[in-house]
């Protein structure tokens, strides 16, 4: 049976996903071609939250997001890292192509401060990408952040990245994209746990320098 063609104005809606084709999602390339191929929109969704499950610092989470930071900052957009577990090391960021003049770090220890900061940053039209390290984030908090990320929808929206501990893997999440990271021999194993408008269950091994 031939598939019924939907009216054009419906097809152009971003919030409508036609099952037979990948959803048109505004996204920023991750900079890892093997991962991009698995993601709807071929990258980090813009104006949405992505969750990265990180069992311990240094499994490749910064290597995974550094190409995004480089791309954004070189385009003159600000990026922010909120409550990182260690010092994002300026010489290495610079060597990876990040324009340090557009790169900001916010130190905060209280969960309430971190959430508030992320919300503020996500709402700001001048910010292109925000990565926040947040251990505790129940569904209510996630929805708040998701709303904040959607806030600048017309301007393209910021890429919001939440870096969560392993315990968060079992918790429900409203994030548009969820990845689980694991260090392997040559780099990082990335498993797609959830992908709005895309496929789940795939894994990809990224080689990082």
């Amino acid at each position: 049976m031939p598939s019924r063609i939907l009216p054009e104005h419906l097809l152009q809606r971003r919030d409508l996903w036609v099952g037979t084709r990948p959803a048109a999602i505004a996204a920023e390339p991750t900079g890892h071609a093997a991962l991009d191929r698995l993601l709807p929109g071929n990258g980090w969704p813009r104006g949405a939250l992505s969750e990265l499950i990180v069992p311990r610092p240094g499994v490749g989470e910064l290597g995974l997001i550094v190409p995004l930071l480089a791309r954004m900052t070189q385009a003159g957009r600000r990026v922010a890292l909120v409550a990182p577990p260690h010092i994002p090391y300026a010489p290495a960021l610079r060597a990876a192509g990040v324009d340090l003049a557009q790169c900001w770090v916010v130190d905060a220890s209280q969960a309430a401060d971190i959430i508030w900061t992320l919300e503020q940053l996500l709402r700001c039209p001048a910010v292109g990408a925000v990565a926040g390290w947040l251990a505790m984030a129940d569904e209510r908090v996630q929805r708040r952040l998701q709303l904040a990320a959607e806030h600048n929808g017309d301007a393209g929206g910021a890429v919001g990245l939440l870096l969560r501990p392993l315990a968060a893997r079992q918790q429900p999440s409203v994030a548009a994209l969820r990845l689980a990271l694991q260090a392997d021999a040559h780099g990082t194993q990335v498993e797609i746990l959830k992908s709005r408008g895309g496929r789940v269950g795939h894994s990809v091994s990224l080689v990082m320098p």
Partner: peptide, 12 residues
């Protein structure tokens, strides 16, 4: 809210 020191830019 967080204090003047809380927001910084990694520099060389």
């Amino acid at each position: 809210r967080l204090g003047d020191e809380a927001l910084w830019q990694p520099g060389l």
